[in-house]
Amino acid sequence: MMDFPPVPARDARLVLIVDDVPDNLAMLHDALDAAGYMVLVATNGEAALACAAQALPDIVLLDAMMPGMDGFEVTRRLKADARTAPIPIIFMTGLTETEHLIAALAAGGVDYVTKPIKPAEVLARMGVHLGTARRARAQQQQAVQARSALDAFGHASLTVRIADGRVLWQTPLARELLRRHFGIDGLRAVLPADVLAWVQRQQATLALHAEPPRWTLDQGQGSLVLRLHPPSPEADEGELLLVMREESDLAVRETLRQGFGITGKEAEVLYWLAQGKINRDIADIVSCSPATVKKHLERIYAKLGVETRTAAAAMAMARLPA
């Protein structure tokens, strides 16, 4: 297996140049190095695929015509791998016929430069595509983080395909709720027929709703509330975001436990405190002594950074779903 230089910190701009002509590699390497880029090189398609998979460069400059595996095939393979698919690829080609340029873009390239290579032109085009790719990655990361953060508040989100109800993406809590309430598990699972029918009915009028359409299902283990949202920016056409929330005492206590980083028993005590119960009542409910409840409350106050039961109850109420 080939050895490649260590992967730099992700704030560095890492470029992979692929060309079977050493003079081309040397010229571009020197120009990019002088411009502040970190540069990797490969002289054939197989080496390019291995290097890209290991180093995950920010951008690839790829010769279209090489012996063996050409640049078109290299691009198709990079785009078929989820890890390397987002990397922008700029073709370097001496071919100016329209059919070749169309083939480069069809394979997955974002741009092309013609030979003989002009370093200033390459740098300018790279700057544009690096900025676009960086913004796209940031938006996607923010969207994933925002949806995953819903788990801490007892909300579970998943992306579904409207046509057949197939689950394309889900948070950990969504996976658990699907398994518990519907007996389905894993990515590529399909929503139950009645849920899919509701999604399809609501999808046609989604833009007309002032609030996300809501459906409450009584599953015998507490109610499961479904809310349908427009697709996130990175979702493909024909997909919708479905947010689920379990409405039960158990789910609420789990929300408190995750949200405040407290133990399960502390979450139970805090839940009943938020319901206005006094220590004696809480002790009866959770089957312990009032003194034990007091000790739990002392630890809860310390973890929440408050000094009174009123402040703790207020924080709990603010965290709980309406």
Rank of each mutant, 00 (worst) to 15 (best):
T216Y: 00
E246V: 00
A107L: 07
A267N: 07
G71M: 04
I89F: 05
A133Y: 03
P230L: 02
T263R: 10
D33Y: 12
G68S: 08
Y271T: 12
Q145Y: 10
D194E: 14
A47L: 10
A47E: 15
S289V: 02
E97D: 14
E234P: 10
I89A: 04
I87A: 05
A47H: 10
A314P: 00
A50S: 10
A34P: 02
H155G: 00
A312N: 03
A82R: 04
T93C: 07
L56P: 06
A312P: 01
C51I: 08
P5A: 15
F4T: 15
E121K: 11
D33G: 15
H296K: 07
S289D: 07
R319P: 00
S157T: 11
R77A: 05
I117V: 15
V74T: 10
I87T: 14
T98Q: 13
D218S: 11
V15D: 02
A82G: 00
A146V: 13
D164A: 06
F153H: 09
L224F: 00
A85C: 11
A235H: 13
N279T: 12
L208M: 03
P6C: 08
D70F: 01
L206M: 01
A53I: 02
A104M: 12
L56G: 06
F91N: 11
A55V: 04
E73S: 09
A313Y: 02
A313Q: 13
M315A: 12
C288T: 15
L61A: 04
C288R: 13
Y301E: 12
Y271F: 15
E254Y: 13
F153M: 02
L95H: 12
V144I: 15
R166Q: 11
A302K: 11
L16Q: 03
